[in-house]
Amino acid sequence: MDVDMRPILEVKNISKRYDDITVFENLNLQVKKGEVLVIVGPSGCGKSTLLRCLNALEPIQEGEIILDGEAIRPGSREVNKLREKVGMVFQSYDLFPHMTVLQNVMLAPIKVKKRDKKEVREEALALLDRVGLLSKKDQFPRQLSGGQKQRVAIVRALMMHPEVLLLDEITAALDPEMVQEVLEVVLSLAKEGRTMLIVTHEMQFARAVADRMIFIDGGHIVEEGTPEEFFEHPKTERLSSFLAKMRF
């Protein structure tokens, strides 16, 4: 795996609060280029909120996010640059219902990056082919299964050539038999050296795909390490009891 030392994404001392509830405080995180970071933790620990902050869907109250050496101030024009460079896939797919599969994946490159339509189309077709959905290109989201929709959502994010891809519990809404087809796509992306931050409850998948694991609980990073250390030799009591629950 081609992991170089330069962090592509750096999170420095960020805090997130809703009125009187603190989701997390003084959180620090570094992601290197080509690294796959998997974040786990109990529900409500703030892991999804963290991803949403990294895409500026949620404002942060303190700290900074540095992408490729550039600090992103929330609310500034740079936020759009952040979103262009950071792709995100959601639990609920959120394809645009009034557009075909192809239109869904072509919208952002054409409108945001003003790229040539023909070229975008070729790339879109190639990517759809790669995830096994070329034959569905002219269908509407409604006509697809959950797993197919999620694969389209991944292609839609990839079409923007993001430096970092955020995956927020992308298999949580899927029927069990569809989880695999989506995870396989993610695994192949990891193999080609994509930088990804993944929030998931699929522990086996986490282990297979991660370069590094992070366990968040109560708004803090409680433990981090290689998948090996993380699953075989958890250092903290909180992590081992969390893992025990996940395994049953």
Binding site: D94, F96, P97, H98, L107
Partner: peptide
């Protein structure tokens, strides 16, 4: 979530409204 989906792709608020929210609302 539709708005967020569009924003996450890098669409500006105006583009989000023009290409996603308004056409959907229209249909």
């Amino acid at each position: 979530t539709q708005e967020e989906g569009a924003l996450a792709l890098g669409l500006t608020r105006r583009q989000m409204f023009t290409y996603v929210v308004f056409p959907e609302a229209l249909s």
